[in-house]
Design a binder for these strands. Structure first.
Lengths: 175, 175
DNA sequence: AATTACGTACAGTTAAAACTGTACAGAGTT
DNA sequence: AACTCTGTACAGTTTTAACTGTACGTAATT
C-alpha cells in the first residue's frame, strides 16, 4: 500500500513536470531547461547540481549550463547556506511575474534591435533610391522601401503591445 | 554602375530578409519558415514553388512543406490565376494582425489544454491525499498539490493576458 | 486514352542541437 | 604548501530536426 502510493506520487510528479514543461517551452525555454525549472519548482527547498543531475538523470555539466541559463533569465536564484560548499539553487516564486517579465524583456529588446537595424538600412536605401535612373530598378527599390516601412511599424506595434502585457505595469496579484 | 546598384539591391534584400526573419522566429516560426515568409512578403506578386525554391536555394519539397505550415497558420494564402497550372502563394498583408492572432491562438489553446490536464490531475491527487496516513508522504503530496494550484492559476493569467493582446478585440490600425 | 506537368509522401541523408566525460582552475580544508 | 572538493570549458558523441531526391497520385493537356 505504501509502495503503491509512493509510485502514485512519483508518477504524478513526472506527469506534472511533463505537462508544465510544455507551457514553459512556449516562453522560449528549451525542453531541457523547462524540465529543470519544473524540477526545482516542485522540490521543497533548494537543490545542488548533483541532486538535479540525479533527479533528471542527466550529467552535472548539463545542469551547470542549464541552471546558468535560468539564472540569466531571472527564473532561478542562488541561495546560501552557512558552511555548505556546494552551490544551491531554487526556483523563484511568483511564476507569472517572473516568466512574463523575462519574456517581455526578451521581446522588447529583440524588437527594438531589429527595428533599429531595419531603420538604418531604410535610410541607406533612401539615399540610394534617388540616384536611380533605371525605371525597373527604381520600382523594385521602391517596393522594398515600402515593405521596410511596414516592418518598422510592425516592430513598433509589437513593442507597444508587449509593454501593455508587462505585469510590473499592471496590478496582477502575486502568486 | 547598373551592376553595382543591382548588387546593392540584392544585398539589401538579403540583409532585410535575415533581420526580419529573426523577428518572425520569435513568433515561433522555424528559421526556414521565417525566411520563406519574408521572401514571399518582399516579392511583388505571388510566387510558385519553383520560384521560391530558386530564390532560397532549397528543394521544392521543402517549399511545399514550408508553405503548408504557413498556410495552416494563416500567414500565407493561395491565389488563383486563370489558365495557370502551378499553385501560387502570397504573403498576407496586415502583418501585425495576422501574426498576432496566429500567435495568440497558439498560446490560448496550449494554455487551456495544459490547464485542463493539470486540473484533472489535481482532482486525482485530491482524492488520494485523504487516504494517506504516512506523515511524510502526506506532506509531500500536499506540497505538490499546492504547486499544482499555482500552475492552474498561472495558466489562467496567461489566458487572460493574451486575450487582452488580441488585435481583433482592440482597435489596431491595419497595416 | 495517352501524355505531360505538378505537388507531396516517404526513405535516406545532411546539418544542428543537446548532451557527456575528461580535464582543469579556483576555493576550502588540513 | 599539499590536498580535496566543486563548477565549468572544451572536444567528442549522440540525438533531434531540417532537408533532399526519387517515386507516385492526380489533374490538365493533347
Amino acid at each position: 500500500m505504501v509502495v503503491k502510493d509512493h509510485h502514485f506520487l512519483e508518477d504524478m510528479h513526472t506527469k506534472v513536470t511533463h505537462e508544465f514543461s510544455k507551457t514553459l517551452e512556449m516562453f522560449g525555454l528549451t525542453p531541457a531547461d523547462a524540465r529543470l525549472f519544473v524540477t526545482l519548482y516542485l522540490h521543497q527547498g533548494p537543490m545542488t547540481l548533483d541532486e538535479m543531475s540525479q533527479a533528471l538523470g542527466k550529467s552535472k555539466t548539463s545542469m551547470s549550463t542549464g541552471v546558468r541559463g535560468l539564472l540569466d533569465q531571472g527564473l532561478v536564484e542562488r541561495v546560501w547556506k552557512k558552511g555548505f560548499r556546494k552551490d544551491l539553487y531554487q526556483a523563484n516564486e511568483n511564476l507569472y511575474r517572473n516568466f512574463m517579465s523575462s519574456y517581455i524583456k526578451k521581446w522588447q529588446s529583440a524588437a527594438n534591435g531589429q527595428k533599429n537595424t531595419i531603420e538604418s538600412m531604410e535610410g541607406e536605401l533612401k539615399d540610394r533610391i534617388q540616384k536611380y535612373n533605371n525605371q525597373e530598378e527604381m520600382q523594385q527599390a521602391d517596393q522594398l522601401y515600402r515593405r521596410m516601412e511596414d516592418m518598422v511599424r510592425f516592430h513598433e506595434w509589437i513593442a507597444e503591445a508587449f509593454k501593455e502585457l508587462d505585469p510590473s505595469d499592471n496590478d496582477h496579484p502575486s502568486d
